[in-house]
Design a protein around this nucleic acid. Structure first.
Lengths: 233, 233
DNA sequence: ATCGATTTTATGTCTGCACATATTAACCCC
DNA sequence: GGGGTTAATATGTGCAGACATAAAATCGAT
């Protein structure tokens, strides 16, 4: 029967979670089959399946056909990190967002972005440098390279009105990518724009984004000192 | 009919993804209803529902009852970050993991962990300091506080055999928590154990873990210089 | 018009059933 | 016993139909 308030699969989910947390189901232990649980809890197998599938997606259960379902040895929740858009990050903190375009134009590509963009040695690409501001104070320093082959219109994008990232998100289809966070000493130009001493530890994000056909953009974001990347599990 | 190789809901998922990426469905635009899509693609509504639900969980679609389904304004993929267990991190890189217990014992709790553990001012808790090693080289420096009220047996845990984190993961039920990454200068003791100069930028992870009833542990991990937190989207 | 009640509609969920698929377990033959 | 074949079984997926729920759209009375 439909519970109304609380979906039945949630109830099953929560009950299974309780048994995991209370060690009623031990780590590594095989739990009852979907059919058995369905009978015990009075629901259809599909309902139990959905609940257990959700727990497996969270990393708490491990499921294999025929072998059954067992509690993960080290039951780890997984944190969901939405790919950061700087403007949203700033606004979520209740600050006013602004950005300043510092420089743009074609230039020869250094090694790291060149490899990420899949370009030949000596190739040129569009480079954008910009500063992101929160309530008028420096928030992050951006150094971006764009593969014009994958986003031809980018050269004409009005980057004083919209940030390069937002323009690309809206105009260039994208697919997959990688995120790399590291702690590094602030480079001279980053320090100058972020208003800190060169060498100050800053969080650096390097993001490579690929479209369905070709790599689109490679960006290096240096966050102002004090930045924290926060996640919940 | 069952496709066999590729589940039908994946086919629907991929087709919808294609339409989003090619801008056939514009950002912000209302897409056809489940019933319409089911008829068009020749599947049951439940199948279409599952596909669209998966895309919504990834942040590409926004769905509301009665209002319908629309493409997210800034279609962002979400990265799934599994909560790091240092041993697994190390072994995934193909290195041999080891850890060394440096110190343990009850001590007065400083402010940050005290608040995270919900303890009264002046309270004491169990402190553990340990070094994680990859192929014998320093990997991360751990400074951990444990709320013995939530994990009474922890005082007797054999921390020379098993790391505190793994012991807790196996013996203390846990629930929710927060992860905070920041770039900071290496403290004196972290630098000493990591083999770098004090003040070197290092990635610091602060994790607070809560069980069903009470906070369990607060840990600060300083990774050796060069550490990168890598995610795929 | 305006506000509130009612209808409509798209998504959310549930069920029962069926078949698919991946493994494990059992079996058989030598 | 060894090795390959077959059966058994738990999960994975698909479908049709039904009801639940939220929110937009409509209608009605003031």
């Amino acid at each position: 029967m439909t519970t109304g308030r609380r979906p039945a699969w949630r109830a099953v989910h929560d009950e299974a979670l309780r048994r995991i947390q209370t060690r009623e189901w031990q780590p590594g232990e095989l739990i009852p089959s979907e059919v058995a649980l369905a009978r015990e809890l009075g629901h259809a197998r599909a309902t139990v399946n959905r609940a257990l599938r959700a727990l497996a997606e969270q990393g708490l259960l491990e499921r294999r056909r025929r072998a059954g379902t067992r509690v993960a040895e080290a039951p780890q929740r997984r944190a969901l990190l939405s790919v950061p858009i700087v403007r949203e990050e700033v606004e979520e903190r209740g600050a006013r967002y602004a950005h300043a375009l510092i420089a743009r134009g074609a230039a020869p590509v250094p090694e790291a972005p060149r490899l990420a963009l899949g370009l030949a040695p000596g190739a040129r690409a569009e480079r954008v440098r910009a500063l992101h501001l929160a309530d008028g104070r420096p928030y992050a320093w951006e150094d971006r390279w764009v593969n014009l082959a994958a986003a031809p219109d980018f050269a004409a994008a009005p980057l004083d009105e919209i940030s390069a990232n937002e323009w690309l998100v809206r105009h260039a289809p994208f697919d997959r990518g990688t995120l790399d966070y590291a702690a590094e000493p602030a480079s001279a130009d980053a320090a100058a724009h972020l208003g800190c001493a060169p060498g100050t530890p800053v969080m650096v994000l390097e993001r490579a984004t690929q479209g369905p056909d070709a790599p689109v953009t490679w960006v290096r974001l240096a966050y102002a000192p004090g930045y924290r990347l926060r996640m919940k599990i």
